[in-house]
Every structure is written in C-alpha cells, then in structure tokens.
Amino acid sequence: MHASPYVVCEHCDAVYTRRPLGRNERALCLRCGAELYRDQFADLQTMLALTVTSLIVFVIANVYPIVTLELQGVSSGTTLWGAIRATWDTGVGPVAVLAALTVFFFPLAQIVMFGYVLAALLRRRVPRGFIDLMHALRLMRPWSMVEVFMLGTLVSVVKIAGMASVKPEVGIFAFAVLTILLTVINSFDLRLLWDARGALDA
C-alpha cells in the first residue's frame, strides 16, 4: 500500500496533491491554515538514536531525586514515583493515577514502542503488531505530559524556596533533557512510518 498522492487536511477536509518540500518547509492548508505536512527534521535512523537516548534519560530522570528540600537540618528529596506515592497516600488517588499515567507510563510506553517500530522498519522487517502499535502511539501523544511536569517542578521549587532551602538534583536536569527529546519525538509525523511500512511490500 503506497503513500497516497493526495493529502486531505485533517482540519477542514480540503484535498491537495502532495508535493516534495524543501528544507524546513511546511505545507499549509489554503483554506483553514492548518499544517498539512512538513519537512521532517530527522530520518528514521536519527529518530531511533534519539529514542534510545530518551530511554536512557528516562531511566536517569526516574532513578535520581528531582530536588531535595532542607528545613532545620532535616532533608527530604523526591523522585517522580515518590511524588506519585505521596499523592496517593494523602487520599487523592485519582490525581496520583493521572500523574503516573501522563508522566510515567505513557511516555515510557511511547519511547519503547516507537523505538521498537523504528528498529524493525530500519531492518526492513514488519514490526509485530504494527497496526496496534501505531494506533497506540497516536492515541497516547496528547496524554504524554513530561513537558508540563517539567514546568510544574519549576513552579514547585519557587513556591517552596521561601520556606526551605531547595537543592536541584540530577533528576530535574534529566527531566529537562527528556522534555526536549520527547518534544522532538512527538513532532515526528507518524504517517512516515506507515509509508516506510508500505515501502517494504513494494
């Protein structure tokens, strides 16, 4: 199944013929102004490298504490999971579940599945469960919120800086890097993976 010569605007249903783009060009819909497609920043190989990197950074971000707080000689640090557990323990379970899904499980699943699909396609194999993986990748995108969490840590740090001394730890830097990596991964057009899969049959 080949890449279609037509592009249909997802936002207004306008039909166009696909044209190759130059470096950094974007094709915009004439009618509604939405982006139809863009020149991709990276090829599959680069994306795989970024995905592997983000998996490593993800582990670092979750193993090390994000910040530690010191108050009258007592220090208290937290990792992401520490924050999720503490929230669960104070009786607002749904909030803990929401945080666990949007900052831990969805980003992790995204990284692993995206990496697997890329690795298989680069070896010219059809990934097992390709169709289901592609749907999962698409549906998880809006619910993966590492970047929002990153901003949340900054706000928290400033909020408590007045009452105790706050020390940034490895985790906060790892989350900052992860934010950038996931932003790149999430801006990758998944339709290119469908095209790469289609090219294997040809």
Partner: peptide
C-alpha cells in the same frame, strides 16, 4: 494539556514538604 500544571505542582509539594 498545559492546564495539568497545578496538578503536578500539588503532587510534588505533597512529596517534598513532608
């Protein structure tokens, strides 16, 4: 998704200020 900001702030403060 950016409105989720306050939810994360609460989760972090609960864990940190303890």
């Amino acid at each position: 998704q950016w409105s989720m900001l306050d939810v994360f702030v609460v989760a972090l403060l609960v864990a940190l200020v303890n």
